[in-house]
Design a protein around this nucleic acid. Structure first.
Lengths: 352, 352
DNA sequence: GTGAAAGCGCTAACAA
DNA sequence: TTGTTAGCGCTTTCAC
């Protein structure tokens, strides 16, 4: 079924080597021959076999990407951003999802490496990213994105998480909030710890005690559950600060269960910036991660590393941006009115 | 840097052929030799080169996927679902995004086919999916998902779009709504046309004229814009019915701009079911597409086609489900109160 | 049951 | 410039 370089060569009346030279542009070929070759390739519908050309030592034309979760729009957003740059250079992307599991991560990484890709992009499942040895042994240029292991010395692209935490906390504190609950996914992740650090610095610098912190896990369901549990027992905060997109959703779901109004009863500051956040009522104040820029930066770094192996490693840190919308409001002076409101609402069911 | 089958063979004191047989399990090998080979492979960190093994005629161990947009969570959700099945069979997924552009689609398809994949999954950019010839010539088994060209005779997995439209329309009509606006992405897509057909059938069967229909485009921004334009000029409907996820977001964004309350002033029925839809206030009534099932079905079909090429082609249609939440409400009898409410709100700015 | 050898489709080195 | 040839790493005959 498949048409090979020999078929094209025969039809054009030249040798396979010439066909290769014409199509790859590696060597000059007499124009008339080149035209014959091209037309033969065209009519036969010839497309060089990537596997074969790769094998022979022509560079690999594939980039491998390993992400923790293909259902998480932040990761796929990053993937889309990278893909948009890679496409122009005749490369393809091969993806695998580690499912947040280090065992799977290792297995999938081995499988990806088996393609001998030109480069590798990985968002680790955990900080103790145990696969560096594997990658190093394969000698594949790679960039770590988003979740960068604590003591990592290679190329990495992240956001400035401490600053992101700072921006979020300052916004809420400036609005008068003191009793804030931070919905972190898990403190096992360095980026989350850094976001917390940024928040705590703000509190410390204002002479306030550190805010309450809950680990809500990495998906929507556990996040909602943990936050609901928390709200059953705890003193009511005046604001929630979520550190991930699923954390944001969990906060909203929990609030909705308690029938609390945002921002009248309680302020909510979300993480990541998706379309739905501006479409809903109230539009959500959130920390926007520069996904497109991150994708561009990841590819820039990886590209540089692929072409010039001796480039010094670097950690690129991009700045997040606070997008102020309507879900955060100044702490109201009158507390009593609010409590009454809440009590009344708690009795009623969902909106009819 | 790379360790090859010869290195393993040498270390284990056997021939390369034997190593291949041990690791692939294609032929029986004496247990002690097999153990030696395995341990050698282990210590050397050997992983067979996929490109080489592919080339030699061992089946391709890669599935290609072509989607219109990697930023659309519906498509990536499908991808994630498929990946979760594919992973278990030692296959990898290579993805490309056509960006909704038939030209790019063709180019990317050619690039994907150049890997001689074992199978191909494609969500076409348009109905006039001009690439079937390309795929047929390559002889690659393939499944078309979600957007199935009008006269398509191959394997396909979709939802029952007519029924989805029917369910949505019946829900609204049963609540008393007559003045409904349908936010379709574009009527150029067969699946959207089918959803409309389902809606219109309901209206016809109740002796009602067909509902107003707007084409809002395929992304959030144009969707919001078109809907805002529409609402500037038109008579106020009592309910919106969105036929895509971006349509849903556009409706919400437009409503928010006009400061209309859901469902008190107007009902909203969304399409697709994402976490945010249950987390926001009010939780959205929506048509849920069975993404996980679709992924499973896509793989089941493709797998069957790969293994038994003579399997008769089939179109699998999965049923959507109406998830009733709080964004749809019965049409209130008193119209005057509502109008007054609206007039009052329109004057005010966003919530403080 | 194992080793030797051919050859997948391609590109790079070498010859003409 | 072009054709010829070797060989990438692997699997699969074909001998033994």
């Amino acid at each position: 079924v498949s048409v090979s370089i020999k078929d094209v060569a025969q039809r054009a009346g030249v040798s396979p080597g010439t066909v290769s030279n014409v199509l790859s542009g590696n060597r000059a070929v007499r124009p008339d021959l080149a035209a014959r070759v091209r037309s033969a390739a065209q009519t036969l519908g010839y497309e060089p076999d990537r596997a074969a050309s790769h094998l022979r030592g022509g560079k690999a034309r594939v980039i491998a990407a390993l992400v923790p979760d293909l259902s998480n729009p932040f990761f796929t957003g990053l993937l889309a951003a990278v893909e948009s740059h890679v496409r122009g250079e005749g490369l393809n992307i091969i993806v695998a999802s580690s499912n947040g599991d280090p065992i799977e991560e290792k297995a999938h990484l081995a499988a990806l490496l088996a393609w001998r890709p030109a480069g590798l992009i990985v968002i680790p499942a955990h900080d103790d990213f145990g696969c560096r040895a594997l990658i190093a042994r394969a000698g594949v240029p790679f960039v770590v994105a988003d979740r960068v292991p604590t003591h990592f010395e290679g190329d990495a692209v992240t956001v400035d998480n401490v600053d992101a935490g700072r921006q979020a906390a300052e916004h809420l504190v400036n609005l008068g909030h003191r009793n804030i609950v931070v919905a972190a996914s898990t403190l096992k992740l360095q980026n989350i710890r850094e976001r917390c650090e940024g928040i705590e610095r703000v509190f410390a610098s204002r002479g306030l005690g550190p805010p309450t912190l809950i680990e809500v896990g990495l998906d929507f369901d556990t996040s909602t559950e943990r936050l609901a549990e928390f709200m059953d027992g705890a003193r009511q905060p005046t604001a929630f600060l979520a550190l991930t997109n699923f954390g944001t959703l969990g906060v909203l779901a929990a609030l909705q269960k308690w029938d609390l109004r945002v921002p009248a009863d309680i302020s909510v500051l979300g993480f990541d910036d998706y379309s739905w956040m501006k479409a809903v009522v109230p539009p959500l104040t959130a920390i926007r991660q520069p996904v497109a820029d991150m994708g561009a930066e990841i590819w820039r770094k990886l590209r540089a590393r692929i072409h010039r192996k001796d480039e010094p490693t670097a950690r690129v840190k991009l700045r997040c941006e606070l997008v102020v919308r309507a879900s955060t409001a100044p702490l109201p002076a009158a507390k009593s009115e609010k409590s009454e409101l809440r009590r009344k609402r708690t009795g009623s069911g969902k909106a009819a």
